[in-house]
């Protein structure tokens, strides 16, 4: 039997595709030995169904807010980039009229309009950023935290377009030169990935509350919204609270007492 060049190329091409297909099928069907290896949760870890936070603005002053911002950015190696275009922030302050657009009125006192509010990722119960992520790099954990997997993020920034709270920052370039003092216990990020507040998941895992809560002198109350007996639920029962853009249905887990 003789084959011409065209036939040969066709057969060769098909064989390559079939070969590669089989190889990857094998890899998927035969899991590695690590499947069997044992992993555990730290017994000290804080466990909840839906972590949330109440921010009591009556107890917050500018000094405390600065402390919250500083500790967060320091322990998480958040770079201090002065150029607004490439700024990265996990927790910061915004004035009332910008943090709650549409809530301000023309006769409101300047004091309230200009009052700085602590803002961070709202850890929404129905997060649009998670809905749009094409790789599940951002996902919602069982305890309600909207988490970032920096290993998986491809940097498409769909989540930044989807977030109605402007909570997400992108690494427009290598952040390392902008970190003054590195926390050796926590990684930095690399260029080309999106980052945001993760409710200190690394601290919860060892039984600690988020860093900002710890330095807030009781102005930030952290707890499990799903537990009716929790302190945060008691505070929510006793006070009138507002949330940012709750009309959008993302169901934020952050509440503000004014």
């Amino acid at each position: 039997m003789s084959i011409d060049r065209r036939e040969f190329l066709k057969i060769a091409g098909a064989s390559v595709i079939a070969g590669l297909g089989c190889l990857s099928a094998f890899e998927i069907l035969l899991p590695g030995q690590f499947e069997a290896s044992q992993v555990l949760r730290n017994p000290k870890a804080l466990v909840g169904k839906r972590w949330g936070m109440v921010i009591d603005m009556k107890k917050l002053n500018e000094e405390t807010m600065k402390k919250c911002v500083d500790i967060c950015h320091r322990i998480h190696n958040v770079p201090d980039i002065k150029n607004l275009k490439e700024e990265i922030k996990w927790i910061w302050t915004e004035t009332f009229e910008h943090a709650f657009p549409g809530q301000e009125s023309e006769y409101m006192s300047e004091e309230i309009k200009e009052m700085p509010f602590l803002v961070l990722c709202n850890q929404c119960d129905n997060p649009p950023c998670v809905r749009v992520c094409p790789t599940k790099a951002t996902f919602k954990r069982e305890d309600g935290i909207v988490m970032m997997d920096m290993h998986r993020c491809i940097g498409c920034r769909f989540c930044m377009a989807a977030c109605p709270f402007g909570a997400r920052s992108f690494n427009w370039r290598d952040p390392r030169p902008f970190i003054k003092e590195e926390n050796m216990e926590y990684p930095t990020r690399m260029k080309g990935v999106v980052e945001k507040c993760t409710f200190c998941y690394e601290r919860l895992a060892v039984g600690l509350k988020p860093a900002c809560v710890e330095v807030s002198n009781g102005a930030l109350i952290f707890g499990d919204l799903a537990d009716p007996e929790s302190e945060i639920r008691r505070v929510l029962r006793e006070h009138y609270t507002i949330r940012r853009k709750s009309e959008l249905g993302t169901n934020p887990s952050l509440y503000y007492i004014i």
Partner: peptide, 29 residues
């Protein structure tokens, strides 16, 4: 154009590796 817009272009195949039907970006691809 999608490719040059990615922050981590070498990871582009993550879209196939972790298919996510609820993402419109995945559907677009």
């Amino acid at each position: 154009f999608i490719f040059v817009d990615l922050g981590q272009p070498l990871r582009v195949l993550n879209v196939l590796l972790h298919p996510t039907p609820n993402s419109v970006m995945f559907f677009d691809m």
